[in-house]
Amino acid sequence: MFEARLVQGNLLKKVVDAVKDLVTDANFDCSSSGFTLQAMDNSHVSLVSLSLRSDGFEHFRCDRNMSMGMSLGNLAKILKCAGNDDIVTMKAADDGDTVTFMFESPKEDRVSDFELKLMDIDSEHLGIPDTDYAATVTLPAAEYQRICRDLSSIGDTVVISATKDGVKFSSSGDVGTANITVRQNTTADKKEEQVSIDLKEPVALTFALRYLNSFAKATPLASHVSLSMARDLPVMVDYQISDMGHLRFYLAPKIED
C-alpha cells in the first residue's frame, strides 16, 4: 500500500505544471524515503529530477517500492480540480493499476477523489554523477525566468558566462544581439533579491533557450534557482522545494565542433 498526504497540496500541482510540457508520460517512484521522478524529454537533451522526501509529507506510507506510470497531462487535469489550499492524499494498492487522488478542503467541508489509470512506461534511468561544478549561480527565480524570456525574443541559444564579477547571458539572432549581466549582491536588503556566485573558475557554456525557458515554469516553486556549470557538461538548474526536496533540470550543452 502506498499512501501519502500532502498538506500543501498545490505544491504537487506546481510540480506537474512545471514538467508536463517537457515530459509527457513518466514513472513516479515511491519508496520509504520518498516520492521521486526522473525522466528525459523526448529529444533526450534535457532531464527532470524530482525528489520529495517522505518527512515532508504529513503522512507517508510505502510498504513496498513501487513505480507508478502516469500521463502528466492527465495528472495535470486531475490536479486542476484541487483547490489551491486543499490537502492532497495519494493512494495506490501494491499491485493495483490505478492511483487515487483525494482532495480535502481546509475546512474539510468538501472532499473529492479522482482515480487515474496507471500506465506501463519503460523509462531508462540515468546515473547522474556528483559533479564538482566550476560555478554555481543562485539568483531570484523570477529574474532567471525574465532573462530566459527576454533573450528568447533575440535568439534561440544563450551563452552563459560566469566570472568573479557576475554572470552574463548573451544571445544573438536576426534581430540583433543582447547581453544581460547579473552581478553578485549578497548584501541586497531583501533576501529574495540576493544573487550569489560561487566561482571556482570562470566558465562559459552555450544552451538552447527553449529548454531553459521550459525549466522556468518551475518558478512558482521556489524564490531562488541555482545554475551549476562545469566545462562541456550539462547545466543543473535547481529549484529547492522548502522542507521537501527539489525539482532539478539538466540540460546538455551545445559544443563547438
Binding site: 537533451v45 540515468l126 546538455a252 559544443i255
Partner: peptide, 14 residues
C-alpha cells in the same frame, strides 16, 4: 558549428 549534445552522452544509463 554548434552541436547539441544529448544527456546520454554525459550520464550513464542505469
Amino acid at each position: 558549428l554548434l552541436v547539441q549534445y544529448g544527456l546520454p552522452d554525459f550520464f550513464t544509463a542505469l
